[in-house]
Design a protein around this nucleic acid. Sequence first.
RNA 1: GCGCCAUUGGUGAAGUGGUUAACACGCUGGUUUGUGGCACCAGUAUGCAAGAGUUCGAUUCUCUUAUGACGCCCCA
Length: 451
Amino acid sequence: MIQKQKGCNDIYGKDAKIWKYIDSVIDAVMEKYNYTYIRTPLIEATELFHRTIGTSTDIVTKETYDFTDRGGRKITLRPEGTAGVVRSFIENKMYGDASLPLKVYYNGTMYRYERPQSGRDRELTQFGMEILGSDDPLCDAEIISLAVNIYQMLGLKEIKVNINSLGDDASRLKYREELIKYFKPHINDLCEDCKERLEKNPLRILDCKVDAENPLLKNAPKTLDYLNEESRDRFEKVQEYLDIFQVKYEINPNIVRGLDYYNHTVFEIEAKVSGFGSNNVLGGGGRYNGLCKQLGGPDTPCIGFACGIGRLKTALELEKVKLPITETIDLFLLYVNDEEKKYAAYLSQELRLAGFIVDTEYNNRSLKAQFKQADRLQAKYTAVLNSTDLNNNEIKIKNNKTKEEEIISLDAIIYYLDEKLNTNLDDEDECGCEDECCTDDHCDKNCHCHH
RNA sequence: GCGCCAUUGGUGAAGUGGUUAACACGCUGGUUUGUGGCACCAGUAUGCAAGAGUUCGAUUCUCUUAUGACGCCCCA
């Protein structure tokens, strides 16, 4: 049997519905904030990621999907969204557009050649947004607020926003030096990995898991103490705007992000629900004012955010957020003989065009089997087409929940369903609980249904 | 890249170096020549991830590979 590739997933059935729902919320919120959708290629020149990510980490050397195409070009499957957006911004000369800043969002699959574990696959879906062409602290706050807003619109409550500022390049460089100076005498008190990090990426020592409780880390110099006046003012403005947006956040000096190109505001949003593995960061972002120039474009200040939808979906599940997913159908048509089958075909078409979700039998199975199928599909109504009834211009329609059966005129079926299904919906809202909820003693919904 | 554990029908799974691989759910059919969900009956893995090895004999032991789960590195 041919299996799917390691760390990739087939998404179908209910999962696919949840996925599409999440996408629809993203689209809706982005529209309100006036971010336009951008779709860039899944493949890019390998060099793009080398230039953006740099070679200081393992990312480029061993965690991307690289290949050489038939023309001998070095190609990489995009591991993240920002580089492609910035490349597109430069290549299409969007920087010349009069309406800067450009506010865009993307939503698509990314590929990372990593060992899969909890919350981490090789193929992942991320959405994210970028503001290109403005250094205004309002942008920083808006991006964070927008991210929070999407989580809230989806019904997620248990999240925590961590922010920090790395300052401008000068501040950042100075801080880095101070950090090395601070840790160097105590190098033997740190774990093996941290010894490696000291020269390579000292900022990452701060969020080491092994040494997390080490007082050495708690007393380490903080980025914020090394900000120059300008950077500090800027960070304060970001916080002011966040307060105006009523975003709750925490300043966490250990948020450093992995890549060199970040400066000023950096932030992460983590899920606080229990049950997450070690990777509980839903999304993160920051300001990358130097990147555009680094890629050969004009000096353009930018900020962005990205969120893995897989983890987001996990968070929604762990929090048992009820999503408006339709899993039911309105009507299932049953039949026995061929004449009735033809009528089922005709009627299903009519009702579908009238806006109802209708399905019918395809394998000429027994009525018993057809009723079972109707249950599996969670049909709200069933109708057994009967030649005698049809000749009398009548149809017998059954509420599949109450089992009440009514004979109505065929001409009235649309009107009938319309009325019944609308009242039915109201009933369901009254209950509004998932199966699991009702068997749960801690259910706070006071529902009276008996799933 | 490193480590640890796992992989048995449609699903959840039990199990053993040696005849027909439990049990449950599901599914299909029947009892009921056109009204299901209950009940009863019958059917439902020539095979235990793939390949190789040890053995008289392997689903069971060994190795390799693949995939899954979790952790490390890394985290865009």
